[in-house]
């Protein structure tokens, strides 16, 4: 059970959060222009990396805000937390 630093509330127990899958998958602005394959790629395809992964988390039992987390899935080490719309820290 790890600790996540919510960008709005600070350090909180993992049990207050819910995971939202891979980050930085943008919903296409013009879905009708996409082929079935392109749409399926957006809809279904996720990386599921063993290692450093960019993820979305929601402070579900807190401020209800969504934000991004860079987490190593092999050891749960969290490298960075940043708000929606922000660019991931470069290092």
């Amino acid at each position: 059970m790890f600790i996540i630093t919510c960008p709005f509330c600070g350090e909180r127990d993992q049990s207050e959060f819910s995971a939202g899958g891979e980050a930085h998958i943008v919903r296409p602005k013009q879905p009708t222009e996409l082929s079935d394959d392109e749409w399926a790629d957006f809809l279904f395809m996720r990386k599921n990396i063993k290692g450093v992964q960019f993820e979305r988390w929601n402070h579900a039992h807190g401020c209800r805000k969504w934000f991004n987390v860079i987490r190593d899935t092999s050891n749960d080490k969290i490298h960075a937390v940043y708000k929606m719309g922000e660019k991931p820290p470069s290092d």
């Binding site: 939202g20 929601n58 209800r64 805000k65």
Partner: peptide
């Protein structure tokens, strides 16, 4: 509610 918040905060801020 959680789904609607997701769209509001992430896709259509």
């Amino acid at each position: 509610l959680s789904k609607l918040e997701d769209y509001l905060q992430t896709e259509w801020p």
